[in-house]
């Protein structure tokens, strides 16, 4: 694994899903051994299936959530395959990029 400036390279996966799909997505994170994730609820935007409102006062299931997970590259493949399948029939976005972390033991 590459190290730059004392930082360790990892893979960052960001995925935007409906609130109701969040349990399925986080279950996949857990399955590939991710040690944690960050969730930002009530995100909004414009995508392939049109506009998405951000904050819905009384419907968390239909509001969008941005999930970010960081994990070693060797475990990312399985997750990406699962997320691709999950999003095949649901609205959502998946972004994958390299990232560097200072405390790699937290992510292994």
């Amino acid at each position: 694994m590459d190290e730059i400036l004392g930082l360790t390279q990892m893979t960052r996966v960001e995925v935007v899903v409906n609130g109701e799909d969040m349990p399925a997505a986080t279950e996949l994170f857990s399955k590939v051994g991710a040690r944690g994730f960050t969730a930002v609820s009530n995100v909004s935007g414009l995508g392939h299936s049109g506009h998405h409102q951000g904050r819905l006062l009384f419907n968390e299931r239909s509001a969008l959530t941005l999930l970010t997970v960081v994990l070693p590259a060797e475990r990312a493949g399985a997750l990406l395959g699962g997320l691709r399948d999950l999003l095949a029939n649901r609205s959502g976005v998946m972004l994958v990029s390299d990232t560097w972390v200072s405390r790699p033991e937290y992510f292994r």
């Binding site: 399925a24 996949l28 399955k31 051994g33 399948d85 999950l86």
Partner: peptide, 15 residues
């Protein structure tokens, strides 16, 4: 079983 197969299975269950 490979992790990838199990992850795929979870998605299939969800679907």
């Amino acid at each position: 079983k490979p992790v990838a197969a199990r992850v795929r299975l979870l998605v299939q269950v969800e679907e």
